[in-house]
Amino acid sequence: MKLIIHDLNQSEADRLFGHHPDDAILIGKDQEIHQCVGCFGCWVETPGFCKIKDDFCDIGKRMAQSDEVEIVSRCLYGGFSPFVKNVLDRTLPYHQPYLTIRDGEMHQKDRYKNHVNLTVRFYGDDITLPEKTTAERFVEYNGVDLDAQSHTVSFYKNIEEMEAARQ
């Protein structure tokens, strides 16, 4: 299964993902999301599920069912836009509370056996060089933190440019 997380409006999403595979799940701004409050309930009260009752309480499970995760986001300060980052923040139940050493650094243990291929596509017509550098390191960090099989990052000036590259 492929999980596509994006911050596009409906017409842009239709254009970009119009012919997505049947087993792809699209996560966009039309879904209700609240911010992670750092309660760790998803670790010590309802393991694997977020305690916040909205469209994202099972985001960890959805991530676990995916072999591909594609993120399309405006590049903001070298990271994701607020909506996309909110979705990522809410993937805490995808991890176990228990700590391990991965790539020489401390991270959370995997709760699930899957290892996603992470593809991140940033867009923005005025992304600065320091922002690009930050974004590359950020995605690399996410790749390690999610224990992804692979991670790639690319930058586009606008959706049209991304659409051409995706085809």
Binding site: Q35, C36, G38, L76, Y77, G79, F80, S81, P82, F83, K85, N86, L88, D89, T91, L92, F138, Y141, N142, D145
Partner: peptide, 14 residues
């Protein structure tokens, strides 16, 4: 949070 700024703070920074 997940290698970056918590999402609520991104709204405020904007």
């Amino acid at each position: 949070y997940m290698g970056g700024i918590p999402s609520h703070m991104l709204h405020c920074l904007m």
